[in-house]
Design a protein around this nucleic acid. Structure first.
Lengths: 351, 351
DNA sequence: ATGAAAGCGCTAACAT
DNA sequence: ATGTTAGCGCTTTCAT
């Protein structure tokens, strides 16, 4: 029973399988796509031949015949950012359920990179593109739908455009964060805002103000903004502390717009012997993995990252359905109270 | 000059471009692939037609003609693990330099998932696959090279197989970690090993023993293993502390096999009022982003994650070269001394 | 139940 | 310098 050795340098083609099984290529195709049309005996013979030749069907050839691609493009800002990494996992998992797979692209917020990736994705004729655009109001992605590539917006609303979108209610997140501090009795709050130009961050800031207003207080008295120059700069949290300390009316709480900033802040506070939450409270945003492992465990606002990813993939997949309607999914952020927040000290000591 | 409206539901085909420009499809192809063969005037006309039709070349059709795919498969254990996320960024960036793009797949260490992904990647006829296999000694990935899909191993040596591979010298990493503690004078060290079954972790453990031996000491007296059951279990660091404290000869240092465990440990120690590094030292592994933001900033062993990714992509890309030789790239881990380690206390107090 | 053949969009070899 | 054409691997009618 000498079988042909499968050691050819490429997967066998459908023709080789047909020859080996003594049938036509049409029949081989039917074995794979419409087995019920094929006689049992023939089917078995063909299946054996497939195994023997190491045949793997060629997606490119199928695609040319009109079968939709199984690859989906994802254009994110930065995969090494844990927010996006977890979103990506959600996308991946949902896609896998439908036998699809994701190409992940990080733009680093550069139009040029975004354009480059979108070009490749279009050439590949991906099933669709999930994108957190560099510029929500412009950029090449707006043309994709016209050219037949479905687009799902991530972390951006669709505005006037007619697209599917997945977002988190950042205004609500900002409100929850600030509301928590207000509830605890804080009336002087420092805002540490990194990446103040990004839409989601701006929304959070808006929510923060709203919370103050809702409490019948004056944002300009309560809030106290400390910009964090060079984004993600290590030293900047220290500078922020300095600025807070020297303020005539020092804050009793720090509201950070992401957990990394909060972590750096916490470390700086420790170093100066400032007790958290005894002397000051600290709240973060994101609920990254290590948030609970900090000291003290960080109170923060959780974004359902994984679910966001799943939802985006779900929407993308649904674009192929005949009766598809563009939808917008909005997730609610969730306040996670741990131990870095508490009531302001009754007798504030100098920081 | 009424231009045809580009609003067709798919990118124009090469034929439409040819018609609009009044040339043959061969000429259009030449404009894109061998512009020097085409007269200036014709070229301009064709380029204009490309723009007008919104034409984007079809990678599937090209692939069928033998042009290699621009997509590379990456099969990792878990993209939401920051180690892999950063490796992925390295891969992504290096691939982009050659106009390629990566499909990222997380196996969650499940053979079944790995098999599924490898099948799709083969069907897609990816340029090659970069893989951190679930089981280095078996699994479907071993067949890929025979079927013409180049494979680069990640975080695994190629052993007898003939493959390219990128690894970190984990034995050296373990030695560096333990050596540092030994140099500081520690003679009783608790080992917190998560995922003890994973190859890279086993290698680190080996390095740790080697360091002790190299110092002329007895591993069985110095080392003190605390297994962390349910991998990544939150509570387990606390249990570890408990176990360490109640030991007749309590450790003066904790050596953790990853930073997340170290972070949890640090938090637990703080809670008990144990000073780090005053009472005990703590060392991590990986140097994740937040390691420097912990309190105290964590001494750890850095893996050049991004560079590992770049190297893997580099190797994968080089597989297409005619005179390719399989290579193995080994990176050296680097000890990053911060403030969680110090000399053991002269008069150890009870933890 | 199976086979024959057209054609998806493109490249490259050949012809003009 | 440009056009013509075969064929990559497959799916899908249409015949048989």
């Amino acid at each position: 029973m000498a079988q042909p050795r499968p050691e050819r340098k490429r997967p066998g083609s459908i023709r080789q399988v047909a020859e080996l099984a003594g049938v036509s290529i049409g029949t081989v195709s039917n074995v794979m796509n419409s087995p019920h049309l094929v006689a049992e005996a023939t089917r078995l013979r063909v299946e054996e031949a497939i195994r023997a030749t190491g045949f793997v069907r060629n997606a490119a050839a199928r695609q040319l015949r009109g079968i939709p691609s199984t690859v989906v493009g994802c254009v994110l800002l930065d995969l090494s950012n844990t927010f996006f990494a977890e979103v990506a996992r959600g996308i991946e998992d949902r896609l896998a359920e439908d036998g699809c797979v994701a190409v992940l692209c990080s733009t680093d917020v550069k139009q040029e990179r975004e354009r480059h990736f979108l070009r490749i994705l279009q050439e590949t004729r991906v099933r669709g593109v999930i994108i957190n655009p560099v510029d929500p109001d412009g950029g090449d992605f707006t043309e994709l739908p016209d050219r037949g590539t479905p687009v799902v917006l991530l972390d951006n609303r669709s505005d006037h455009r007619q697209l599917c979108a997945v977002t988190v209610d950042n205004v609500a997140g900002g409100m929850a964060s600030c509301g928590h501090l207000l509830d605890l009795g804080h009336r002087r709050i420092a805002l540490l805002c990194a990446d103040a130009d990004v839409r989601s961050v701006m929304d959070r800031a808006e929510g923060v103000r709203k919370a103050v207003l809702a409490g019948g207080l004056d944002p300009d008295r309560v809030l106290f903004e400390i910009p964090l120059d060079p984004p993600r700069n290590r030293g900047s949290a220290d500078a922020a502390i300095e600025q807070a300390v020297t303020d005539p009316e020092p804050p009793t709480a720090f509201l950070c717009f992401n957990d990394t900033v909060a972590a750096t802040l916490l470390a700086g506070l420790h170093r100066r012997g400032v007790a958290v939450p005894g002397d000051v409270s600290v709240i973060g945003y994101d609920d990254v993995t290590f948030a609970g492992a900090l000291f003290p465990p960080l109170t923060t606002v959780r974004q359902p990252k994984y679910e966001i990813g799943r939802a985006a993939a779900e929407l993308l997949l649904s674009e192929s359905e005949p009766d598809h309607l563009h939808r917008e999914v909005v997730f609610a952020p969730e306040l996670v109270v741990r131990q870095s927040t508490g009531a302001p000290p009754e007798h504030p000591r100098a920081l």
